[in-house]
């Protein structure tokens, strides 16, 4: 598989979709791990926040009392990894009482109708 990949110079469009709230389960954390790993492969990466996934990038997280690793600062690192295609579903954000200024990153706001098309454009995508 590795040999085949080296021959393939073309960048694949890949996307990570966050749809789960952080800390209550491990999915958002693992989504972020995948974003950072994917960035190392020099592909065309998009990141999308929908449903409870919008809470993964809320400002002001403090995990000291629980001892669970705070992965919020790592989202800010996405820019340093050249991940610029970051999107958030407007309805999910608004329904959950969030505004863009409440978020640790600056995603582009998209409408729900655009989501399936974004998924369809990818070579593959993962939902966390």
């Amino acid at each position: 598989m590795n040999e085949e990949m080296e021959e393939n110079e073309e960048m694949a469009k890949l996307m990570i979709v966050f749809r789960t709230a952080p800390y209550g389960s491990i999915y958002a954390f693992e989504g972020l791990e995948n974003v950072l790993i994917m960035a190392a492969y020099d592909q065309d990466i998009s990141v999308l926040f929908v449903d409870d996934g919008v809470y993964a990038i809320k400002k002001g997280m403090d995990t000291t009392a629980t001892g669970i690793k705070n992965f919020s600062p790592t989202f800010r690192a996405m820019e340093a990894y050249d991940i610029e295609k970051v999107f958030i579903d407007r309805t999910s954000m608004e329904e959950r009482g969030l505004k863009l200024e409440d978020l640790v990153v600056e995603p582009e706001v998209v409408e729900a109708e655009a989501v399936e098309k974004m998924m369809e454009e990818q070579k593959n995508f993962f939902m966390f």
Binding site: R19, V50, D89, A112, V115, E116, K117, M119
Partner: peptide, 15 residues
């Protein structure tokens, strides 16, 4: 679960 409702918010007609 809300999965079906969530999916329907984004699913294109005909999918």
């Amino acid at each position: 679960s809300k999965s079906l409702d969530d999916c329907l918010k984004y699913a294109a007609k005909g999918s």
